[in-house]
Design a protein around this nucleic acid. Structure first.
Lengths: 220, 220
DNA sequence: TATTTAACTTTGACTATTCAAAATAGCCTG
DNA sequence: CAGGCTATTTTGAATAGTCAAAGTTAAATA
């Protein structure tokens, strides 16, 4: 059994590898885990010895298939727990991330399957993040963001890729939860601003950095 | 924050102190935690330094008020989680103990309060064990057992004080879950046997040791 | 190409928790 | 009261995970 620490290393490796070629710099992992770089080097060598990662010295780390399997399991637990906390216990979607960080290491497969059934086998969590299937399949869909999408088309928020309570509260109060219909009214690249229109409320201005965290798809 | 290990030491100390004067022999604690006695000595000295227990060298350990408070919190989490697993996730009552052993260290007060409300503020868990209140009050009721109660009176099973899946499965199949009406038909002390009658089914024979684990109250 | 710099690795040390095995303290028996 | 037994404590060592700080490397800069 992988310890909570090992599970965290693998989970963050999976998250950091999204998009790229999978080779994660040691420093990025250290930052994500809030430990000093030397600690990561030590741990990564141990994980490599266990066949969970491949270590390219001075270049980075990559999950092996075995490591990816473990990481997907952790991510599935994390996202299903978040969904449970919001849908059944009616918790604030900004608070559930921290809770799930602890619970994801303490839930058995049996409990997880029951939770999954209770929730109706959800495909995404409250933030719109896809939930890996029991077989370890993770929806690879790539979406545009409010910073990159075509302007003046009807859109639908599908995902908010940030878990800090501050940002999530802002998104909620701005009516930018997954499912909301929006439209990009304009962009001012020089000023780094995006203006979006929502069904109700006046136009909303947000920075390109913030806009880049709101993933959208064409509203059909 | 107390580590899982510390929480376990305190929880078992609370459980082992039930009834007695509170002074638990080091060996008993070692047995309950499945560690060697030397480990307990080391750990208990650390807990004593932290004000959570009082250590009487060569005699035993006792919880301080602070330690008891922590232990009651752990026990509350354990028993509420068990109740949730049985009532909401429909798990086998024999399986939930092991699950709760892990979850009890990962649940926040916020989640716990919501679970408590969802379950309707239960007073006892699926085994009939009392759930400490949020204020740390634990029902001190003492019940008779099938081994000690008066014979030939209508009774009601209130609690099964064993968590091994084997015993719980036996109890379930024998119709001895909390709530069941029973009556002691007879005892043979020499043979160490108790015969009980249940509403349905033929008389059931069980050993005094087993009968001592089934707590009962007069059926009103 | 020589130098600077940022990222990464190494080294030595520390905390928490555990075990095995040797030492000791109390108590019970004769 | 001497032995002996049992529970407990001590001692020495191991494992997992971590940090601080010193040492390397490789790539970017001049």
């Amino acid at each position: 059994m992988a310890s909570s620490t090992v599970e965290n290393y693998l989970k963050h490796l999976l998250l950091l590898a999204e998009g790229g070629d999978g080779l994660v710099p040691m420093g990025a992992l250290a930052g994500a885990l809030a430990v000093v770089p030397g600690t990561v080097t030590t741990m990564v060598k141990a994980l490599a010895a266990g066949g969970l990662v491949e270590h390219r010295p001075r270049q980075g780390v990559r999950l092996t298939d075995a490591g990816r399997g473990v990481a997907l399991g952790v991510l599935r637990r994390h996202r299903l727990v978040e969904t449970f906390l919001v849908q059944v216990l009616k918790m604030d979607w900004a608070a559930v991330h921290a809770e799930a960080e602890r619970l994801e290491h303490a839930i058995s497969d049996d409990v997880l399957d029951r939770l999954d059934a209770l929730l109706g086998h959800p495909a995404v969590d409250p933030h719109g993040d896809p939930i890996p299937t029991r077989q370890g399949r993770l929806d690879p869909s790539v979406y545009a963001t409010l910073a990159t999408c075509v302007a003046d088309r009807p859109l639908r928020v599908v995902r908010v890729t940030e878990q800090s309570p501050e940002f999530l509260h802002f998104a909620e109060h701005s009516g930018l939860r997954p499912g909301t219909r929006v439209r990009v009214a304009g962009r001012n690249l020089a000023a780094g601003l995006v203006t979006v229109k929502r069904p109700a409320g006046r136009p909303l201005a947000l920075s390109l950095a913030a806009a880049g965290k709101i993933l959208v798809a064409p509203a059909r």
